[in-house]
Design a protein around this nucleic acid. Structure first.
Lengths: 163, 163
DNA sequence: GTCATTCTGTTCGCATCCTAATTATATACA
DNA sequence: TGTATATAATTAGGATGCGAACAGAATGAC
């Protein structure tokens, strides 16, 4: 028990509330982003994937999974839908016949401005009345928490399996 | 454009990265909590609902939806599964024949300690190497962001529909 | 070269969220 | 009273995530 701040206190509601706020922020950001993107026939999850390709096209599905921190199964399904909607296409890798590389089609590339605009608007709404310093602080702390969770999932999961 | 910190800069990756960190933290917390709860035959989402009932039993499904910030449809499905697994039961409300109140069964009440323990462990892992002051600051900023998003979803959605 | 292992992508089944539409009931108002 | 509106819960269908189990291909030990 290394931390005393979250040992069960008189109010066991505290631990629960802390968890809910992370859920709520993530889900409400998705909801808002989806609302901005719906007129363009896109969803927030699809845009995260497209943005990864806009930074560098022709990634493998494993690379996409690592960048988006989701499993390859989820990537497979999303690329299926994106391919059906003609936003991207799969092409075989010349060297490795297992891997398929995902490339943007012109319809997606032409939407680049729409995508960053929608993300910027969601950020602006999220961070209203927060100073730049507070936003920096929030993102910095969130990155540290993400790092902790990565470690926990890489290191503690085996303990759970073993124990 | 009230905020200059997230106006499209030279690096349009910035807006995207900010969004991803909220997604990742929320999803990894779910994953970790699910790992702790799996031996007990429960999921993280179910535990959020059970915790709401542990604080006050016999809530209506609309009340649960408001507390968890999800739709009544999602509550309906979750209560279906929780009821099938004998964790809770629906009982009619005496005064209003539309509403059904959800009550914990003994099997769930007896797990109270397990639930808060799992939440406390996820928090401890999430906030490792953060000072108490930093955790307070993070949660405070997250609550402000949640408030902003609530307003945005209540106020800006109509604009999207109208526009 | 051969065999065991690892890696990439997929299919399957499930849980959790959503929107839209439906049913049944309650409430407000003319 | 009677009708319009609002509310509680559900069904239907889709998107996004998961783990388990699989096939095909590459890689490493020998």
């Amino acid at each position: 028990m290394p931390d005393t701040a979250f040992a069960p206190s008189e109010d066991s509601h505290t631990e629960n509330e802390a968890g809910l706020v992370f859920q709520h922020v993530a889900r409400q950001r998705i909801k808002l982003l989806d609302a901005f993107l719906a007129p363009h026939g896109l969803t927030s999850a699809q845009v995260y994937l497209l943005n990864a390709l806009l930074r560098e096209d022709g990634r493998t599905q494993v690379e996409l999974a690592r960048l988006l921190e989701i499993g390859t199964v989820a990537v497979s399904g999303m690329v299926d839908r994106l391919e059906a909607a003609e936003w991207v296409e799969r092409r075989p890798d010349g060297k490795d016949r297992r891997t398929k590389r995902v490339f943007l089609k012109a319809s997606a590339t032409s939407k680049k401005h729409v995508l960053s605009e929608a993300a910027a608007q969601v950020n602006a709404l999220s961070f209203e009345q927060l100073t730049d310093a507070e936003v920096d602080q929030l993102l910095s702390l969130m990155r540290r928490v993400r790092g902790n969770l990565r470690e926990a999932l890489a290191g503690e999961m085996p303990t759970l399996i073993r124990g």
